[in-house]
Design a protein around this nucleic acid. Structure first.
Lengths: 207, 207
DNA sequence: GTCTATACTCTGATAGAC
DNA sequence: GTCTATCAGAGTATAGAC
């Protein structure tokens, strides 16, 4: 019998399950307390493992954190990558806003993990920011620039336009507690935000 | 001789200076690492005091943190409080955006302290959010509502309009590292943001 | 592969000399 | 008021039994 169909990944089902449980628990804890505020005790408890057992799967606290960040980066940048230079400008931007808000709604822990990381100086992802992220943003900013020059959307500084999309969508994940405390009960923040942001960017970009 | 002119504040000059140095150092550390990630060792080092000496001025880590938060709340809410129901709607809102962005530029550590606190569940300020902040926002939302009903600015959900101002202005303090990494050198993020946000809210609120 | 036991460091806080 | 010394507990990580 061959219990390991993938030859280059010598992991049993249990190993895969445990690694996943650890990463999930670590996402909980890191996103709430930041790297230094998180403890292996807490991660192990949430994951339902003993601390030494946790350290059998990952060599260190750093390693778990790094695995989380790199594993999530692609999901995080995907919506911007999907912005299609050949599509209809307004439709493309609104679709980007919508997808980004969906990420905030469906992956709030991931949003907070990145927020914590940036807030704390981003020392562990600084290089990625200045290379991968910057290149991607520059590329898409040129697309926006072209659309503006062609008169298809209003002229605005493209980088700051992108920042505004990040700020407005991520706010609903990162400041969720505050949003709900201010709105009070009986509200659906994300549904309201979806309508509000559509209006906002339609008005902002209209010629 | 009377070295203490204020009878109800039995503090010498040195005590005041040290307390201030501690709070300033604590703002550095708490705003960068969050409550749990901050250590008294680090705060004491930044403040230039020994750890026991620091604990002579404040009874505990919690006490320093609480003092910081309550001391800063007034500064933080001041711009919104200044929004004048009798003023010109567009001018008042733009002035609010401007003042809020100035706070981000001049008090980025304070912005990050609050961001960390919300991000980490806001357990230490939850009550304030649901009472003081909510009341203030509700009151100002009613002012915005009236302006909209009078047809003086565009109709939008007022709470989310306020959220958008918070998100857009605080982003430049909280995500400063990312903003600078993406823009690259040779930029003045706050100057650019000031112009961009003025354009954004003018377009958004125009009738 | 998983557990118990434990080494060793860091952290918040206190005691007591000066 | 400030320092040295120190404590108890929590923190990361390792050794070794099973």
């Amino acid at each position: 019998m061959q219990p390991e169909p993938t030859a280059n990944r010598p992991q049993t089902r249990i190993q895969r399950r445990n690694r996943q449980a650890i990463l999930d628990a670590a996402l909980d804890v890191f996103s709430q307390h930041g790297f230094r505020g998180a403890t292996l005790d807490q991660i192990a408890e949430v994951a339902g493992l003993s601390k030494p057992n946790l350290l059998y799967y990952f060599p260190s606290k750093e390693a778990i954190h790094e695995q989380l960040l790199t594993g999530l980066l692609d999901i995080w940048l995907d919506p911007l990558r999907k912005l299609d230079p050949k599509g209809d400008p307004l439709r493309e931007i609104l679709a980007y806003v919508h997808r980004k808000l969906e990420l905030s709604r469906d992956y709030p822990r991931e949003s907070r993990l990145f927020a914590n990381e940036i807030l704390q100086g981003a020392s562990r992802i600084e290089r990625v920011l200045a290379t991968v992220l910057r290149d991607l943003v520059d590329r898409k900013a040129r697309v926006l620039m072209r659309w503006m020059e062609e008169g298809r959307i209003a002229a605005l500084p493209p980088h700051h336009l992108i920042f505004s999309i990040w700020a407005l969508t991520q706010h609903y994940a990162d400041f969720d507690v505050q949003v709900r405390a201010v709105l009070g009960p009986g509200h659906d923040p994300y549904a309201e935000a979806d309508a509000f942001l559509e209006t906002l960017f339609r008005r902002l970009l209209a010629i």
